[in-house]
């Protein structure tokens, strides 16, 4: 699968994750999100940036449990809940947040 963003061609794997993580930018994120019918808002970006920071710090994509916990630590208890993340990224928040954030698929995303 390929995406064309601002004249750049970006390679995606079968599940829509970036093949080359360096291809990521905000425009690519918006387009990947649209593929999954998610319109990115400020609230989404908070989580996307948090996921990217998580990856930079721990060099691993966050699982659901870890994303919830980290969100709680960084953005406060109100947002550090599964239900909040599910509203933003339906069905599988860790998976979709990582995909849009241009991170590898979380290893233990069941």
């Amino acid at each position: 699968m390929q995406l064309t963003v601002n004249g750049r061609t970006i390679e995606l794997d079968k599940e829509g994750f970036l093949v080359n993580l360096d291809d990521w930018d905000a425009d690519a994120a918006n387009m990947i999100a649209l593929n999954d019918q998610i319109h990115l808002t400020e609230a989404h970006w908070e989580i996307i940036n948090l996921a990217r920071e998580f990856y930079q710090t721990f060099q691993i994509s966050p699982s659901m449990r870890a994303l919830v916990k980290r969100t709680g630590q960084v953005l406060g208890a109100e947002k550090g809940r599964s239900i909040y993340l599910l509203q933003l990224f339906p069905v599988s928040p860790a998976r979709f947040a990582c995909k849009i954030a241009g991170l590898p698929k979380p290893a233990n995303c069941l």
Partner: peptide
């Protein structure tokens, strides 16, 4: 290599 100094502090986030 990925650094264990930065990897290991992830453990509490995974309970």
């Amino acid at each position: 290599h990925k650094s264990f100094s930065s990897l290991l502090p992830v453990l509490p986030l995974y309970e």
